[in-house]
Amino acid sequence: MMGIDHIGIAVRDLDGQVSLYRDRLGLAFEGIEEVPAQKVRVAFFAAGSSRIELLASTSPDGPIARHIDKRGEGLHHVAYRVPDIRAAMAEAAAKGFQLIDQEPRPGAHGTLVCFLHPRSTGGVLTELVQHTRSEH
């Protein structure tokens, strides 16, 4: 792992929370993107060498909507940057981590992502992220 890529925070009202993080907390707003495959809209903010990702569901049956229904708004996941997602997935599986994704899936900003189940990571949903473009 190359370090923390971002912290994911589940929210109901993306626009309202953008205002909180940008205007009140003063983080640099990087924009909003929809990730249809995950039924989510995301907003990113620069936070030093890491980022904050706000996640809002685009569907009542989406994973973020289900998360908020069960646990409320707040911390959703911690994402770690990896240079090679497939190698990181194989290494994680070999070390006994439970992979939610058996294949990398598309993430925001053209990334490839994979999630590790909280049962195998001390209760924290963990995301592995490989950037496929050079801007992040």
Rank of each mutant, 00 (worst) to 15 (best):
1 M>Y: 09
2 M>I: 12
4 I>W: 04
5 D>G: 07
5 D>C: 06
7 I>Q: 02
7 I>N: 03
7 I>E: 04
9 I>S: 08
9 I>T: 06
10 A>R: 01
10 A>N: 02
10 A>I: 04
10 A>Y: 00
10 A>K: 04
11 V>I: 04
12 R>D: 13
13 D>H: 02
13 D>G: 07
14 L>T: 11
15 D>C: 05
15 D>E: 15
16 G>Y: 06
17 Q>V: 07
18 V>W: 04
19 S>P: 08
21 Y>P: 12
24 R>K: 14
25 L>W: 13
28 A>E: 15
30 E>V: 14
31 G>C: 13
32 I>L: 13
32 I>Y: 03
33 E>V: 14
34 E>Q: 11
36 P>L: 11
37 A>V: 10
38 Q>E: 07
38 Q>L: 06
39 K>I: 00
39 K>Q: 08
40 V>Q: 03
42 V>S: 11
42 V>C: 09
46 A>F: 00
47 A>T: 07
52 I>D: 02
55 L>W: 03
57 S>Q: 05
58 T>D: 11
60 P>T: 07
60 P>Y: 03
60 P>H: 06
63 P>V: 01
65 A>M: 00
69 D>S: 10
70 K>S: 14
70 K>C: 12
71 R>Q: 11
74 G>C: 12
75 L>F: 09
77 H>G: 15
77 H>E: 15
77 H>I: 14
78 V>T: 13
78 V>D: 12
79 A>R: 14
79 A>F: 08
82 V>A: 09
82 V>Q: 07
83 P>K: 15
84 D>R: 09
86 R>E: 14
86 R>F: 05
88 A>T: 00
89 M>V: 03
91 E>W: 07
93 A>G: 11
93 A>R: 11
94 A>N: 14
94 A>K: 13
94 A>G: 15
95 K>T: 09
95 K>W: 10
98 Q>P: 07
99 L>A: 11
99 L>E: 03
100 I>V: 15
102 Q>L: 12
103 E>P: 04
103 E>V: 14
104 P>V: 06
107 G>E: 00
109 H>V: 01
111 T>G: 08
111 T>N: 06
112 L>D: 01
113 V>N: 10
113 V>E: 06
113 V>W: 00
114 C>F: 01
115 F>C: 06
116 L>M: 05
118 P>H: 09
123 G>E: 09
126 T>F: 05
127 E>G: 03
127 E>P: 01
128 L>K: 01
129 V>L: 01
130 Q>I: 12
133 R>Q: 13
133 R>D: 12
134 S>A: 14
135 E>S: 08
136 H>C: 03
